[in-house]
Amino acid sequence: MAVLTIAAAVAAMTLRNLVHCALALTVAFAGLAAAYLQLDAQFVGFAQIFVYIGAVAILLVFAILLTRGGEVPGQSVFSSSWVWGGLAALAVFATLAWAIQNSFASQREPAETVQASVKQIGDALMTQYVLPLEVIGLLLTAAMIGAVIIAMKEEGKE
């Protein structure tokens, strides 16, 4: 499962055709959803499937087609400073891997049984976390209105 997720992520970052990139990304998101289900976080796993595979992937395909990204570019797909970008990513991975290998937290044993039912999550959202929930609702509304205004045709042009 992990190998499939990583392979899909690498494909999403290296393929030339942007539509293929979006499809590979969908596979990577599905692999992550499977990892969430493996970790007993059912609600987050299904939210991942709904939000990422259902909404974000469709949005990406729409954007790719609207910007004519479906055409395979003739020139290189990597920007002119790709060496430095790759080196920075490698350095970040080396640091993270070193920290994980040396951390005492990596040896922790998981709790035997974990309850994260939808009812409990709903209770927590409606009591302790009700203010963050309201804020995120406001944020999503603002983001939707902002996205529509930004992408709207400018008046008097075209």
Partner: peptide
């Protein structure tokens, strides 16, 4: 960590803005 590094490498090296967002 592997997924984070792959995403960072893609965001830093690709030409197309949509792939940077991905």
């Amino acid at each position: 960590a592997v997924l984070f590094s792959i995403g960072l490498a893609g965001a830093l090296t690709r030409r197309n803005a949509i792939i940077v967002l991905i």
